[in-house]
Each structure stands twice: as structure tokens, then as C-alpha cells.
């Protein structure tokens, strides 16, 4: 996966790049029935999916910026759900806290119409390893 393209799951969910903010890509996901959880709200798993995609792409962009070509694997994610996700577009952006040689730590936030009222936030840890030839 390059930092310019999203995987099949993300595309099927309607995620796309929505520009950059302070060096990190912003991922947007339009509302669709595919994202609906309890009636009238976005599914927590769909929100988690957007957060993860923003985490991945933020790390890819940071590694690219540093000229590092590594394989990225998620180790874990811990999500706090702050507000119910509404039936509208959701955005997420990750911030690489540290990218070391073996592990990278990323914090991600998701919001909807009002950026100052986040819907969910999470941290993710990634394992970095050399790419197989």
C-alpha cells in the first residue's frame, strides 16, 4: 500500500484522501448505510476503521518524508469513543508521536462537522520491519 492509495476495505467503505494537514493526510469517509450502527449513528467499528486508516497513512507519509522504506504492521489500537458518530462525513488525522527503528507510535483523532468536538480518538502502535525482497 502506497501513501497515495487506499486498500479495498477503505475504498469499499467510501474512504478517501481529503488533503493534508500539518504533514499528515486527512482521511474522509462519506456517510452511507455501510457505516450505520445503531439506528441513526455511525458504527464504532466503522469509526475504528477510519481511525486506523488515518494512522496507517500518517505513518506512511512520515516514513516517506524521512526516506525510510519499511513494512508496517499494526500491533495494537486503543480507541476512546467520545461522542455518537452522526450520519454525516467523518474525518480523521494521525500524528506520528515517534517513529523509531522497530516501533512507531501514532495518535489519531476523528471528527465530523466541528473539529473541536472529536467523535473518537485512539493511539496505535506499529511494528516496523525491513521489506522482503
Amino acid at each position: 500500500m502506497k501513501s497515495t492509495e487506499l486498500p479495498p476495505y477503505a475504498r469499499a467503505m467510501g474512504m478517501e484522501f481529503a488533503g493534508h494537514d500539518n504533514g499528515s493526510p486527512v482521511i474522509a469517509m462519506v456517510w452511507s448505510a455501510r457505516a450505520m450502527g445503531r439506528p441513526g449513528f455511525m458504527h464504532g467499528g466503522a469509526i475504528g476503521g477510519v481511525l486506523e486508516m488515518a494512522g496507517f497513512t500518517a505513518l506512511e507519509a512520515e516514513l516517506e518524508r524521512q526516506g525510510i522504506d519499511m513494512r508496517i504492521k499494526p500491533i495494537n489500537i486503543s480507541t476512546e469513543y467520545l461522542r455518537g458518530g452522526l450520519p454525516e462525513t467523518i474525518y480523521a488525522r494521525g500524528e506520528v508521536v515517534r517513529a523509531g527503528r522497530r516501533v512507531a507510535n501514532v495518535r489519531i483523532e476523528a471528527w465530523q462537522s466541528d473539529r473541536s468536538r472529536p467523535v473518537a480518538s485512539c493511539w496505535m502502535n506499529f511494528q516496523l520491519s525491513p521489506k522482503k525482497a
Binding site: G44, G45, A46, G49, M53, I77
Partner: peptide, 13 residues
């Protein structure tokens, strides 16, 4: 390999 998003959703439900 599956995306992790669907696995989050399954575990959430």
C-alpha cells in the same frame, strides 16, 4: 490479508 477495520467491528458487536 483482511483489513483490521472489519475485525474491530466484529469484536465491537
Amino acid at each position: 490479508v483482511l483489513a483490521s477495520g472489519p475485525i474491530i467491528s466484529l469484536l465491537d458487536n
